[in-house]
């Protein structure tokens, strides 16, 4: 048996796991969303609004978007780490990505709880 000395902050494993957990949440929501959409009584803007206005859909949609933003953070950060070699440019891109996603989170919360 190979005994490896595991060192580091373990954030690699944490992000790897988070990427899969958030993906599963989004995949489940996609099914719920599709079922809700197909069972709409009529295809009007009023029915579309009513679909998101329900307490469960608000809760599920919010979870979907939070999962999406975390998922996007890990994925986009990986892209910057792979292709952007300049430390200063990479750090700037990381910060911009993070700020944009946090802003989106506030925007989505406002969209959902205004209904």
């Amino acid at each position: 048996m190979v005994k490896r000395l595991v060192v580091g902050a373990h954030y690699g494993f944490r992000d790897w796991l988070a990427q899969r957990v958030t993906a599963t949440v989004m995949a489940l929501y996609t099914v719920i969303f599709a079922v809700q959409l197909l069972s709409l009584p009529e295809h009007t803007n009023a029915a579309w609004r009513a679909m998101f206005a329900g307490g469960f859909m608000k809760f599920a949609s919010f979870l979907f978007f939070m999962s999406l933003f975390y998922h996007a953070w890990v994925g986009v950060r990986d892209i910057w780490m792979d292709y952007v070699q300049s430390i200063s440019v990479r750090l700037t891109l990381h910060v911009i990505t993070l700020l944009v996603l946090v802003g989106y989170a506030g925007w989505v919360a406002q969209i959902l709880w205004r209904l």
Binding site: W48, R49, F52, A72, G75, Y104, I111
Partner: peptide, 19 residues
Amino acid sequence: GAGLFLFLGGLIWLLDASL
């Protein structure tokens, strides 16, 4: 994934406007 991220703001805008 990169494409979806680039257009994410536009997609949220569409959701916002539709609701």
